[in-house]
Amino acid sequence: MPSSYPLPEAGLAESGFAQKPLDHLDSLIKAHIEEGRYAGAQIALARHGKLALFRTYGDARTEATRVPAANDTLFLLFSQTKVLTSAAVWTLVEEGKLSFMDRVADHLPEFAARGKADITLEQVMTHQGGFPSSNVTQDAWADHALMRAQVCDFSLEWTPGTRLQYHGRAAHLVQAMVIEAVTGQDYREVIRQRVIEPLGLGQDVYVGVPEDQQSRCADTMGHEPHDNTAAFRSAGLPHGGGFATARGVAAFYQMLGHAGRLGGVRLFSPRLIAYVSRNHTGESPDLNMTGIPMHRGLGPHVRGESDRIRGLGTIGAPSVFGHGGVGSSYSWADPSSGVSFSYLTNFVSPDPWHTLRLDRVANLVHAAID
Rank of each mutant, 00 (worst) to 15 (best):
S134M: 11
A259G: 10
G297W: 00
D219K: 09
N228I: 08
H127L: 08
R37Q: 14
R266C: 07
G299K: 03
M255Y: 00
D286G: 04
S342W: 02
L84T: 06
S86N: 09
Y57L: 12
A105Y: 02
G130K: 02
A140R: 08
L45Q: 06
G200P: 10
K82M: 10
H226W: 10
R194E: 14
P300N: 10
A64K: 15
K116F: 03
K50G: 11
E14Y: 06
A230M: 04
G11K: 05
G311E: 08
V174P: 00
T183N: 13
A88N: 10
G49K: 05
E305I: 14
H239E: 11
L164G: 02
Q138G: 13
D370T: 08
I309G: 11
G36M: 08
G338I: 12
S134W: 13
S329L: 07
T162D: 04
Y206G: 12
H226K: 12
T137R: 12
A44D: 08
R360E: 08
E110W: 06
R310S: 05
A246V: 09
T81G: 06
A251D: 09
G129Y: 05
Q185W: 13
A117F: 03
T65D: 14
E211H: 15
A250C: 14
I309P: 01
A31N: 13
S133T: 13
V361P: 07
S319P: 02
A368I: 02
A87D: 11
T220I: 14
R278P: 11
F347S: 11
R194Q: 15
I43F: 01
P238V: 12
G222E: 06
S349P: 00
V205R: 05
G240T: 06
R360S: 09
D212N: 15
F341T: 03
V89E: 02
H127F: 02
D153P: 06
A60P: 08
